[in-house]
Amino acid sequence: MQLEYLPLRKEKSLYTWIGVIIVGLTTLVTGYISEFDVLEAFRVIPGVLNFIFTDFLPPAVKAVPDFWGSLLDTVYMAIVSTVTGATISLILALLCATPTTPHPLFKVTIRAFASLLRNIPALAWTIILVPAFGIGKTVGLMALIIGSVGDMTRFFTESIEEIDLGGIEAMRAVGGSYWLMLKGGVLPQCVPALVSWTLYNLELNIRASTIIGMVGGGGIGFFILSTIKLFRYDHAAMAILAVAIVVLFVEFLSKNIRERIM
């Protein structure tokens, strides 16, 4: 056994070294392009910590009424975009996934469409849509829905394609209709995965909707950006803290629901 083991190990360590060298070179090249200075990074640590702890903390509790409305808007936007996105994605995914697609042509088109939507970040969608629709919640919501549809269509399609096809075949064999097949064969198998993906998307959307306001999409992002620009860091800190609490709460909720259904 020893004899068989040793040569393999040598080969493996060669690969490891090649990997390390490639990663090292990439670090140097990308560091050069992005003007990243390691020494500078270490040098700024005390300053940054000092900046965060003295300028940002303690957060100004009196700022809460100023952003309370936009914080709620942020949460509402995340909920609405996730549910709307999930509904649209479910329809698209059923049309696109191999076991349920009515025609292969749908598959290619929807895949390409979803890929286009998700590979442009939601924040970029906001910037693109603002000139036509103006600044505000409507644009932010549209951008969030676009991103959600792009992500969830892909996830949903993959979940539907992973199901066991035996049951569906049996239903087809006894003459079950397309709807019956969906209701009795496809959905019961993949609903836990779909709900789980939707909750994951809600976590993503709550983050995205907090920053979407920075480019004119409504919500708390605008408050954070403008207070930082006005050097009212303690006000910004309170808003950031509120965002963190909301994010942690949503994560906690999502985790609990997921554990129950899986």
């Binding site: 003007e35 965060i52 965002v243």
Partner: peptide, 27 residues
């Protein structure tokens, strides 16, 4: 706690301290 604050807000904080450019972006 660090994860609960979105990436772009961290970047914004670093930009506020270090000024514009790719360096605060990396951080």
């Amino acid at each position: 706690v660090v994860r609960a604050v979105p990436t772009l807000i961290w970047t914004l904080i670093f930009v506020a301290y270090l000024g514009l450019g790719p360096f605060p972006g990396v951080l």
